[in-house]
Amino acid sequence: MRQKILRFFTRRSTWASPYILFLLLFVVLPLILIGLYAFMDYEGRFTVSNFTKFIEQPEALNTFIYSVGMAIVTTCLCILLGYPAAYILSDKEFNTSKTLVLLFILPMWVNILIRTLATVSLFDITGIPLGQGALLFGLTYDFLPFMIYPIYNTMTKIDKNLIEAAQDLGANHLQVFVKVIFPLSLPGVLSGIMMVFLPTISTFAISELLTMNDIRLFGSIIQENIMLSDTMNYGAALSLIMLLIIGITCLFDNSSKDSQLNQGGLI
């Protein structure tokens, strides 16, 4: 018996169990709780009123639609600006320096509030008024590195033989790009969309700071409701809607972030 117990604890696969328990308690259970609270009223009874409130209240619904719109525009801007940058960075003809790549992803590791406040000060100094334009600039500024990095990562892993084969078979530069490089870089673009689109909908502090509390995104509404005990269940319902969007976005992108991280490279 003692032997058996000892063998159980020294088997290496057993060492995953503390973390599995941890994940169940701190990741799975909390997500289930969002669902539970969303369908409960203040006194803990089952209800769908939190969702009817969302549809009937124009403010929350409008903010939601506006946030999705802003997130789409921000994501498009990030692709338009980031894709060429990632392409140039990964092309040996233009760039061989890892440090330059590092400079592009470095802002990912600087506190997002500090970066946002820095943008606010840039607008202050140049005298450009804060508002929707500033918000779009700020969001694009904050999330651009998260678009460049995954695209760059995928592009560096494209097999160079494929490009050479295409060239040998008579494809010109444009054809090589359209037929070979672009299709192979799409997984990176999808990861980038995940890393930009979702956080943009759910930001709350950034929009407050860049528009002097004028424009609020969906994240702000969630935050305001969840922190107060009498609207907590409504906040949970809004979070569940957010989770739904995450689920839908994930369906489009099966190669989630871990494939990026697992492949190593920079960080």
Partner: peptide, 21 residues
Amino acid sequence: FLNNLPLINPDIITGISLFLL
């Protein structure tokens, strides 16, 4: 898959779900 959940979730979802816990 479980290990990836906190990576995919935006911060606000991680924060709120733990707050509710």
